[in-house]
Design a protein around this nucleic acid. Structure first.
Ligand SMILES: [Zn+2]
Ligand SMILES: [Zn+2]
Ligand SMILES: [Zn+2]
Ligand SMILES: [Zn+2]
Lengths: 133, 133
DNA sequence: TACATACTGTTATATTATAACAATTCTAAC
DNA sequence: GTTAGAATTGTTATAATATAACAGTATGTA
């Protein structure tokens, strides 16, 4: 039987770091994570970065490129990790993952003239949130 | 002694660094720039980063966030870089600024439900270019 | 068992970016 | 032309972000 999706069982370090990111109300930076998990035996940057790389790869988290910070995926894990969009408040730094099917479809089907075939995109929208307006 | 270059109202360091980026076929990283301009008397990172910050601010260059690299603006009307989109080849690293009015209008008018009012966006589309396909 | 793959722990280093402060140059108002 | 504020420059030091390299350990599968 072929399974549609492999269920990713997270390793110990991956689970520790995912849990931390998942319960954080704001994007977390790698070294903030490192300092937070030292009590759990994760002592060095490579341990954090390896877990982060893997979690990004399987779509459990996303990297906010403009902030070098990580958020957990708020959509149905991993499937749309190749099509990410975020709203970012320039005042309070709040980040929210946008799940807008029309937007996602529009960008996924975007065809660029010069022969590019797109496999993935990342969109970051900046402005002021409700509170900060 | 040192006079402002009239052409774009850029200062000496800004002009040197803009020229370098502008004639580069590929995005340039800050320290690549630093090494390239040392013969012109720019010796330290802050000199490079200050020029880069200013050039980004006035829209002469853009930062490719996923690469920590800089390209010159290819849109003549991008005076304030509030709406940027790039196609990026995952194989050869080629980066191309997309100027698609429909896309730009679509994203600029994108209204997110949760009360965000967007002032600016950055879109990075990844795939394989014509050569690399 | 034996082998492959993924994950871990560790030290060191590379890369990217900013803080802080003094000096100079540009601009515009007087 | 003098003057004062803003912008730019030069400089040293350091902070923040990320990876290389290598050795060891678990885990799944044949
Ligand atoms: Zn997601
Ligand atoms: Zn806000
Ligand atoms: Zn542009
Ligand atoms: Zn290519």
């Amino acid at each position: 039987m072929t399974r549609m999706h492999k269920e990713h069982n997270l390793s110990k370090n991956q689970q520790i770091i995912f849990d931390l990111i998942h319960k954080s109300p704001e994007p977390l930076k790698a070294y903030t994570i490192l300092f937070s998990v030292q009590k759990k035996g994760i002592n060095a940057p490579p341990q954090v970065y390896r877990a982060l790389d893997k979690l990004v790869e399987i779509g459990k988290i996303h990297k906010i490129e403009s902030k070098n910070a990580f958020v957990s995926c708020k959509n149905s894990d991993c499937e749309i990790s190749k099509a990410t969009a975020f709203s970012i408040c320039e005042s309070c730094e709040m980040v929210d993952e946008i799940s807008d099917v029309k937007l996602s479809k529009y960008l996924s089907s975007f065809n660029y003239k010069k022969g590019m075939k797109f496999k993935r995109f990342n969109l970051e929208l900046f402005g002021l949130c409700k509170k900060c307006k």
